[in-house]
């Protein structure tokens, strides 16, 4: 597959994530949009990894080029999982305190 297609697909998913972050007020949905953006990046990384592999495989059939990219995806998932656990805990605490997950109530930064 041309790498271009993957790039545009990932861009589309990423931009949808951004639009979601900008338009929604529900903290949980915003959080999910962030996950969506992370996945867009993951997809692109895997696509690049395979592109890299293809480029090197022509010279050396046993090459392991591109493995790094997939491992990065793995680590991103690890970090995302940790992030979700902490983030959701924060949202729970926030709900407990102000009985809402609307980020517009979270304007404490001003004061």
């Amino acid at each position: 597959m041309p790498i271009n297609y993957y790039i545009f697909l990932a861009l589309a998913l990423f931009s949808i994530g951004i639009v979601g972050v900008l338009t929604r007020r529900n903290a949980i949905i915003i959080f999910m949009c962030i996950e969506l953006m992370l996945n867009a990046v993951n997809l692109l990384l895997v696509a690049f990894s395979k592109m890299h592999y293809l480029k090197n495989a022509a010279a050396d059939a046993m090459t392991t080029a591109g493995t790094d990219g997939q491992l990065f995806v793995f680590f991103i998932m690890v970090v995302a999982a940790a992030e979700v656990s902490v983030g959701l805990a924060i949202i729970v605490m926030m709900y407990r305190n102000i009985h809402s997950v609307d980020i517009n109530f979270l304007n404490r930064l001003k004061h």
Binding site: V21, L22, I103, N107, R108, K110
Partner: peptide, 14 residues
Amino acid sequence: LQSGQVGNYVLLMV
């Protein structure tokens, strides 16, 4: 500019 609204900040960032 510092409205304190997270949404505004993100919008400005984008």
